[in-house]
Design a protein around this nucleic acid. Sequence first.
DNA 1: CGGCGGGTTCACCACCCGTTCACGGCCGGT
DNA 2: ACCGGCCGTGAACGGGTGGTGAACCCGCCG
Lengths: 119, 119
Amino acid sequence: MAMETEIEVLRAGELEVRPADGLALAGGQVLTLSVREFHLLVALVRRAGGIVSRPDLYRAVWGAELRAGDRSIDVYVHKLRVKLEQAVPGTAWIHTHVGFGYRFDPAVSHAVHTDGTGG
Amino acid sequence: MAMETEIEVLRAGELEVRPADGLALAGGQVLTLSVREFHLLVALVRRAGGIVSRPDLYRAVWGAELRAGDRSIDVYVHKLRVKLEQAVPGTAWIHTHVGFGYRFDPAVSHAVHTDGTGG
DNA sequence: CGGCGGGTTCACCACCCGTTCACGGCCGGT
DNA sequence: ACCGGCCGTGAACGGGTGGTGAACCCGCCG
């Protein structure tokens, strides 16, 4: 094969996502995600390390403007966290930034809450 | 030199498929498959580990575009699962990814989550 | 012509998904 | 302390998706 199709593969720590195939692996095992869950994960991982605002997230995944009072994002972030957690226990990947949005962090921060008054 | 290795042999766990010969073995025993069933199995095994969408599957096996409402794939996946199951009981190879397609997984994952009181 | 095996379509329905609601905790402002 | 906004989370609900048995159609063979 001269040209193997250049499949986009997003990697973030123990997570591997193939947007084109609808496939996501965490800690080596396949995640069973719904369409929404998958797209949400992709949107977050694409901007790993950065904060994605709810309106942006909604546009990226739902393809529409976020309406006031719509809690869909919260619900799906929760579903995603649950599945991620059960795939790789103890790993917190999706972080909430109150008033700003969510941030996907590939870093394996088990109990690294730097407890900090320091900051 | 003669390329005897022309004969393609797909292996995935306990499954062995020879596309050229129309032969498929599961757990050492020969599977009795119809043409459609066989091609479907080949298409899935060729992309073992990855998700194959229904349109892709239909193109690969039927050689045409999947029409809306066509359930042929579902029916044949079912037939395949039945024969695979009776060849090697307890092994779930073909996984459904709702909204995405099917995935052939060679791994013998006895993912028995229902470990409860179940006697 | 009748039986048979294989492929397609149909019908029924259980389950999954996406949305929305409801309740409660946390935090900042007054 | 009270209120209001923001978020986590469990659950209800309606529609879509896929599992499955069976009818139907057709070519083949005796």
